[in-house]
Amino acid sequence: MDADGSPQEITTLVGREVYSNNGVFVGEVEDVRLALDAETVTGLALTELNGELFSGRIEPGKGVMVPYRWVRAVGDVILVNDVVERLKDDEQEEAIA
């Protein structure tokens, strides 16, 4: 939905940058996963991933699928919950232990 409540074309999501709600770049939307029967978006396929967040977890050149329920806001960029940043925090904790 647009700021005025009108629906947007799904294709407008493709190419948008995705950031965590803490302002950390996550990746760029390459594709959208749909539930056709419910006519809803269920996930965002991201590429051009933040190397710091996904280093050692995702092979270079690969992408990730982010559940759409993590999306907090859609505007010029897409904001998602900080769950993605926890990947980095988990990695740091393992290094300390």
Score class of each variant (00 low, 15 high):
Ala97Gln: 11
Leu34Val: 07
Glu93Leu: 12
Gly15Asp: 11
Ile96Glu: 14
Thr40Cys: 12
Glu94Asn: 04
Ile96Arg: 13
Ala35Ile: 02
Ala97Ser: 15
Gly63Ala: 09
Asp2Asn: 15
Leu44Tyr: 02
Leu34His: 03
Asn50Pro: 02
Glu48Pro: 04
Glu94Arg: 10
Val77Gln: 03
Ser20Asp: 03
Asn22Lys: 13
Asp89Ala: 14
Gly51Tyr: 03
Glu39Gly: 00
Gly15Phe: 07
Ala95His: 12
Glu93Gln: 12
Leu46Glu: 12
Gly63Val: 01
Leu79Arg: 05
Thr42Phe: 02
Arg57Met: 07
Val29Tyr: 10
Lys88Pro: 12
Glu9Gln: 10
Phe25Gln: 04
Arg16Glu: 00
Arg86Tyr: 09
Phe25Ala: 08
Gly27Ala: 01
Thr47Tyr: 12
Phe25Ser: 09
Asn22Ile: 06
Arg16Cys: 03
Tyr68Arg: 06
Pro7Thr: 02
Leu44Met: 05
Arg33Gln: 15
Asp37Thr: 09
Ala3Lys: 03
Met1Arg: 10
Met1Pro: 14
Arg57Ala: 12
Arg69Gly: 11
Val24Asp: 03
Glu59Tyr: 06
Trp70Lys: 00
Ser6Pro: 01
Glu52Leu: 15
Asp4Lys: 10
Glu93Cys: 11
Val24Lys: 02
Gln92Asn: 10
Gly15Pro: 07
Glu17Cys: 04
Gly5Arg: 02
Thr47Glu: 13
Val77Trp: 04
